[in-house]
Simulated assay, not measured.
Amino acid sequence: MKGRKTRRNFLLTSAAVASSIVTADALINNTSGTPSATMPERVLGRTGVKVPILGLGGAGTNTPLDKPDKEREAVAIIERAVELGIRYFDTARSYGTSEIHLGKVLPTHRAKIFLASKTDKRDRDGAWRELESSLKRLNTDYLDLWQLHHVSFLQEIDTIFSASGAIKALEEAMQQKIVRFVGITGHHDTQVIAEALRRFEFHTTLIPINAVENHHADSFIPAILPLAKQQNLGVIAMKVPAYGKLFQTGGLENIQQALGYTLSQSGVHCCIIAADSVQQLEENVQAAVSYQPLTNQQLATIEQRTQGIWQDTTFYRSWN
């Protein structure tokens, strides 16, 4: 294992990044990049950073972002996302070529974006190796947010917080200013995420918040959101349309309903949604631009509407 000084030198010699992006959001039909409408923004908990309510997810069933043979399509989506005012970009070392595709577009915009990646390694050395690889692939010398990826079992918690666990890598990376903030993600067991949040002062958590979660007996909405608010955690919502399954017969009508439900949950600061195409990205941004908080009655109506599809659409709970 490399010494800390060697690792730091390696990271600092990666590609320099120092440009800016369009400072305001563009409405989707505006292809000139001239700002004409903005997405609402929220402060991401104790990070103190203000982000738009919609970020671009880096992986999905049909998105080109994590596929090696879809570079042209992936680059087009990422470039359009920047034009439309998206500043939060989500990826992970395990997301195929997602980091590589992002690394082809984002360096010239680095100063104004919030870049988040993840590691699924539970030991210190393994996590460090993934961080070095992520930075190289992303063509940057730091991450705004580095997260422990899909933590699912209590045994993993014990490994992560052991003397040689991944939490050591997170702490060291922050100390060396290679990582600004650290977080934890999971979509399997709320007790696991809650236990991790009790053991360490994370800055953020990335959890499933959508229109079918509350039908599940172990919903992240009542189990994690109050704890996150108590700790002033930044909460990023995932699985917002459940890879489109929320739009099946008997479900929701459109992305406006799905996004509206998620962002109307108290304590949620932003959400990440992958895009299969530029057109779908534009539809997602339009929904974010026009977002208005839903009333309790509207939220209840959506929950009632999705009661018959929740078992099929919470499939992600079985992913480990």
Rank of each mutant, 00 (worst) to 15 (best):
Tyr261Asp: 11
Ala242Ile: 14
Ser219Cys: 05
His269Tyr: 00
Asp276Ser: 14
Gly234Phe: 07
Cys271Tyr: 04
Gly244Cys: 12
Val212His: 01
Ser219Glu: 06
Tyr261His: 04
Val235His: 10
Leu233Arg: 00
Ile236Glu: 05
Leu225Met: 04
Ile236Phe: 05
Met238Glu: 10
Lys239Pro: 08
Pro241Lys: 08
Ile272Arg: 05
Pro226Val: 00
Asp276Gly: 15
Pro241Gly: 12
Leu252Trp: 03
Pro226Arg: 02
Ala237Pro: 06
Leu246Ser: 10
Ser264Leu: 02
Ile273Met: 14
Asn254Ala: 06
Lys245Gln: 15
Gln279Leu: 14
Ser219Thr: 07
Lys245Asn: 15
Gly244Ala: 12
Val235Phe: 11
Asn254Lys: 07
Ile221Asp: 00
Leu233Ile: 06
Gln265Tyr: 02
Phe220Asn: 01
Ala274Asn: 11
Ser277Lys: 01
Ala237Cys: 05
Gln231Asp: 06
His269Ile: 02
Val235Met: 14
Ala223Val: 00
Gln265Val: 02
Leu252Asn: 10
Gln230Ala: 09
His215Met: 05
Ile272Trp: 07
Ile224Glu: 03
Met238Asn: 03
Gln248Phe: 09
Pro241Ile: 09
Gln231Cys: 07
Leu233Thr: 04
Pro222Glu: 02
Tyr243His: 14
Ala258Val: 10
Val212Glu: 04
Gln279Asn: 13
His216Lys: 00
Gly251Thr: 00
Cys270Ser: 11
Ile272Tyr: 05
Ile273Phe: 06
Asn232Pro: 03
Val212Trp: 06
Gly250Ile: 07
Asn254His: 07
Ala274Leu: 10
Ala275Gln: 02
Ala228Phe: 01
Thr249Gly: 14
Asp218Ile: 00
His215Lys: 04
Val278Gly: 13
Ala258Lys: 02
Asp276Lys: 10
Gly244Gln: 12
Ile255Asn: 08
Asp218Ser: 08
Lys245Glu: 15
Ala237Trp: 00
Thr262Met: 06
Leu263Cys: 14
Val212Gly: 03
Gly260Arg: 03
Ile255Tyr: 10
Ile224Trp: 01
Thr249Pro: 13
Lys229Cys: 02
Ala242Glu: 15
Asn214Tyr: 01
Ser266Ala: 14
Asn232Phe: 04
Gly234Pro: 06
Phe247Tyr: 12
Gln256Met: 11
Ala274Val: 11
Val212Thr: 04
Gln279Lys: 10
Ile272Lys: 01
His216Asp: 14
Val240His: 04
Asp218Val: 00
Ser266Tyr: 00
Asp218Leu: 08
Ala258His: 04
Ser266Val: 13
Val235Ile: 15
Ile255His: 10
Asn232Arg: 06
Thr249Met: 12
Val235Thr: 11
Ala228Met: 01
Tyr261Ile: 06
Gly234Ala: 08
